[in-house]
Amino acid sequence: MTLNFPNSLTVLRLLAAPAVAVMFLYFTRPYADWFALLLFVSAAVTDWFDGYLARSWKQETKLGAMLDPIADKAMVVIALMVIVGFSSWSPWLILPATVILFREVFVSGLREFLGDTAGTLKVTKLAKWKTTVQMTAIAVLFSQGVFEHYLGMSVYGMDAAMVQGILSGQQEDVLGLGWKVAATDWSGIVGLILLWLAAALTAITGWDYFRKALPYLKDES
């Protein structure tokens, strides 16, 4: 096994996946949201760099080929678990998250069953786009947690009438409630739209892998 620089980036991304969840055990919010967001975005950026550097420097290895998809799946699965766990359990969030989690488990099991034959199931461009949209959606949803908690800190001690007066322009918006409400709402909307798009791409690529694997699943007559 060769642990070159691109592989080291992949290992760091793999370690960053559980670290995203650990942030919420040792830090209060919104600091946990900030650390999780920065850690997730940094890890997601390495997903592009490690592959690019491995190809450019001709340092592609079996270790990297094995760890790269595992790191991607670990990042997505753990981050979604954290987001759903700290959400209001809205079906608009749970349904696409369930589709994504089911597909990742299904394809991983399919590849494990096929063994050496799994090498014939090449990663498609659509699958790469799927991963990109997944990570973008998760990053945006993490940012919603940041905005949401700064908003909560700003309205602490205010009654509903005071908040409404500030948002309607009747009172001066000293604490910036207007932009915090807008940022919270829009990050939630954009994040959900991207997550549903990611779920659709996830389902399509999952079906594509299954269709390609069907010839290897038939019993010999």
Rank of each mutant, 00 (worst) to 15 (best):
D47W: 12
D47R: 14
D47P: 14
F49I: 15
F49M: 14
D50M: 10
D50K: 11
G51S: 09
R55S: 04
S56T: 02
S56I: 00
S56R: 03
W57V: 14
Q59Y: 00
E60F: 14
T61Y: 05
T61P: 05
T61N: 06
T61S: 11
K62Q: 06
L63H: 07
G64I: 05
G64F: 05
A65E: 15
A65M: 13
A65V: 13
A65K: 15
L67E: 02
D68L: 12
D68I: 14
I70A: 11
I70Y: 09
I70T: 12
D72F: 11
D72I: 12
K73A: 10
K73V: 09
M75L: 11
V76L: 05
I78C: 02
I78R: 02
I78P: 03
I78K: 01
L80I: 08
M81F: 15
V82C: 01
V82P: 00
V82M: 01
V82I: 03
V84P: 07
V84Y: 06
V84D: 06
G85K: 09
G85I: 10
F86V: 10
F86M: 13
S87C: 06
S87M: 07
S87A: 06
W89N: 03
W89L: 05
S90R: 06
P91M: 02
W92H: 07
L93P: 09
L93M: 09
I94G: 12
P96K: 11
P96T: 10
T98E: 15
V99A: 14
L101A: 12
F102E: 12
R103E: 08
R103P: 10
R103I: 04
F106L: 07
F106W: 06
F106R: 04
G109W: 02
L110Y: 00
L110D: 00
R111V: 05
R111C: 05
E112P: 04
E112M: 03
F113C: 15
L114M: 00
L114G: 00
D116I: 11
D116H: 13
D116T: 12
T117I: 13
A118E: 00
G119H: 09
G119K: 10
G119Y: 06
T120M: 12
L121E: 08
L121N: 06
L121M: 10
K122L: 06
K122S: 06
K122G: 04
K122M: 05
K122N: 06
V123S: 01
V123D: 00
T124C: 06
T124P: 06
K125Q: 15
L126K: 09
L126D: 11
A127V: 01
A127G: 01
A127D: 01
K128S: 09
W129E: 13
K130Q: 09
